[in-house]
């Protein structure tokens, strides 16, 4: 029942996407658009097939930066969010700075990372971390502060200490907030890694894109875009799955809403 409902709800999007691809194919054949401007979907598929192993190799490099960057972002966001919740002056001092830091375009920060840390893996990891940190930290801080004050009162009448309240009440309460932040972060992370690679790297999907672009192999460029989309979607779904697995108490309400 649930499966069918989810297929049914995705059907319009799939049909729409299918129609666009067919239209695209027809137009590029009928109008004979040069492949370096707009390759037909079939040409892209061929490029994808021909370069499959090469694309996998580059994806692995990008994925390494994405996963390490995400992990680092999760770690720092958790530590900072808990610290900001525990010590209000820290929150007052740091929170506005975090918001301001978000208005600095990543394109301005990324070159600095490269100047400071070279063209290896580290600057990419840091760029991914920078991009992912904010949605994670903001969501966590929000979640930790939105706990029902009655629940805190109750814990106080049990003489529970602050850490016990944090671990058994605030953190579990903030978990749905954390996971919605992580979903946003996961989709940003691939983008962050690719931007990092554009500015200087030896391998990775960003490098593959640059090379395809410079040699006017537009079909290869499109092929890498498809890989990026699939990678982002996979990460997104993975986060959703992790949320589902780690919050068994949240399943009931979701099922009810869909059922």
């Amino acid at each position: 029942m649930k499966k069918w409902a989810s297929i049914k709800s995705n059907l319009p999007a799939a049909v729409f996407l299918g129609l666009i691809v067919i239209l695209w194919e027809l137009i590029s054949r009928a109008a004979a658009v040069p492949a370096y401007i707009l390759p037909a979907p079939t040409e892209i598929a061929v490029a994808l097939g021909d370069n499959f192993l090469l694309l996998i190799a580059h994806t692995r490099v990008t994925l390494a930066a994405v996963l390490s960057g995400l992990a680092l972002a999760v770690l720092t966001a958790c530590i900072l969010a808990v610290a900001m919740d525990r010590w209000k002056p820290l929150k007052q001092a740091l929170y506005p700075v975090l918001v301001i830091s978000q208005s600095i375009p990543i394109f301005a920060l990324a070159p600095l990372m490269l100047i400071w840390f070279g063209v290896g893996l580290l600057p990419k990891i840091l760029i991914v971390t920078l991009v992912c940190f904010f949605p994670l930290a903001v969501n966590l801080v929000e979640g930790l502060s939105q706990v029902d004050p009655e629940a805190i009162d109750l814990m106080q009448t049990m003489k529970a200490n602050r850490w016990m309240i944090m671990i058994s009440v605030q953190l579990p309460f903030a978990m749905p907030f954390f996971f919605s932040g992580l979903k946003i972060a996961a989709t940003y992370s691939v983008l962050g890694a690719i931007i990092g690679e554009w500015l200087g790297a030896r391998a990775g999907l960003g490098i593959y894109m640059l090379r395809a672009m410079n040699s006017f192999r537009t079909s290869h460029l499109f092929a890498s875009v498809i890989v990026v989309i699939l990678l982002s979607l996979a990460l997104f779904k993975l986060v959703e799955l992790a949320g589902w697995a780690s919050m068994p108490w949240q399943r009931q309400s979701k099922d009810q809403m869909e059922g």
Partner: peptide, 25 residues
């Protein structure tokens, strides 16, 4: 103290909820 809503924590099982005062002690 027993507040108006039962305030059982949804992320804890019955046993874990009831054991909270003991763990706090």
């Amino acid at each position: 103290y027993m507040p108006q809503q039962d305030l059982l924590f949804p992320w804890k099982t019955l046993k874990q909820n009831a054991a909270l005062p003991l763990l706090a002690a």
